[in-house]
């Protein structure tokens, strides 16, 4: 379980912000991912949660080698993926697959389901001889719970959940070792979501897959993940086992996130302990000095503006947290009524 399959070190991805059309001038950088490090262990699921725009999809794109990082490195099975030759890159593409956030745009509308799922075999013909492909595609449809009869249909004839299954079947075609799932169930209804989650768990057991599971739904992540990384404005702010993050969160941002999860019980409407974050998410082009969360943090002190809190083990806690004042806090995430807490936001 502790064997690492993917090692991510100080990964940075900046996008230039330009002005002018003929003479493009770079006037700044979007710091989409800024110094992210973690290991992915064989057969585990690492959940990645965080606010919209915090860099989750950028992280996925860089890990998939769809984009080059600004700096930092990723080692897959001991090899630096950004230094691979053409052959190595082909093998990498087989071994790391992506299931995308948006089942509505990620499938070519002019291709039949059979063509879509069979396409990876065109690119990697060594995986399945031509004669067996149609049958392979039908097997894949069955594995992901779709009707093999529908092989000649087009994506628009399927609903969202069905399209996401098509995406998963396509990702599975080449028998990868790692699947990066970018919001794979967020567009789905609950019973379909439950089926897809169980499907992902089943496939993991069956094929020994490792997942990086990106999602904004903290309940879904808790259900699937062995470990969880919480991201804020391009950085991991807290990293721990599922239990450490959900039962003993120490970073104020994690605590706020957990408390905002809507609870499926209307009786909790008026007595939920929500930490309402005030203020906006700052622009990643010009993030706050020191701790990036300080403009929305109710615990911020003067030191928070001066010193970047490193993601490290801190006293009184058993997992790394990037907060100068990391400490446990009782978060009411249960379905029972809690007390209303309003927390003031301190400004510096």
């Amino acid at each position: 379980m502790t064997e690492s399959i993917l090692e991510v070190r100080d990964l940075v991805k900046y996008y230039p912000v330009t002005r002018g059309i003929v003479f493009k001038k770079t006037i700044g950088h979007v710091q989409a991912v800024d110094g992210v490090s973690f290991d992915l262990h064989k057969g585990e699921t690492l959940g990645v949660v965080g606010e919209s725009g915090c860099g989750k999809s950028t992280l996925a794109k860089v890990l998939m080698h769809l984009e080059k990082p600004t700096s930092g490195g990723v080692t897959f099975n001991g090899q630096d993926i950004y230094k691979l030759g053409a052959g190595g890159l082909r093998r990498l593409r087989r071994n790391i697959q992506l299931v995308m956030q948006d089942p509505y745009t990620s499938l070519n509308p002019r291709m039949t389901v059979g063509d879509l799922i069979g396409e990876p075999f065109e690119i990697h013909p060594e995986v399945a001889p031509k004669a067996s492909r149609r049958q392979k595609v039908q097997e894949l449809l069955e594995v992901v719970g779709l009707n093999p009869e529908h092989i000649n249909r087009y994506p628009h004839q399927f609903s969202g959940g069905q399209r996401q299954r098509i995406g998963i079947a396509r990702a599975l075609a080449l028998r990868p070792e790692i699947i990066v799932c970018d919001e794979p169930v967020s567009a789905l209804d609950v019973s379909i979501q439950a089926q897809v989650m169980n499907l992902l768990e089943k496939l993991q057991d069956e094929f020994g897959l490792s997942y990086i599971f990106i999602a904004h739904d903290l309940s879904v992540v808790r259900h699937l993940a062995d470990r969880v990384a919480v991201m804020y404005l391009g950085k991991i702010v807290e990293l721990g086992s599922e239990e450490q993050i959900y039962e003993r969160p120490t970073h104020p941002y994690t605590q706020a996130l957990l408390s905002a999860v809507p609870v499926p019980d209307p009786n909790s409407r008026h007595n939920k302990a929500i930490i309402r974050l005030t203020g906006d998410v700052p622009s990643p082009t010009n993030p706050p000095s020191g701790c990036r969360f300080r403009t929305r943090c109710w615990k911020a002190e003067e030191v928070c503006a001066r010193e970047v809190p490193l993601l490290e083990l801190r006293s009184g806690s058993d997992h790394p947290s990037a907060c100068h004042f990391a400490e446990k806090r009782e978060i009411v995430v249960s379905h029972e009524a809690g007390e209303l807490t309003e927390l003031p936001t301190r400004t510096l």
Binding site: E51, S52, H216, L218, A260, V261
Partner: peptide, 8 residues
Amino acid sequence: ALDVTVQA
């Protein structure tokens, strides 16, 4: 597609 604090 939104995270919980923005959803709220």
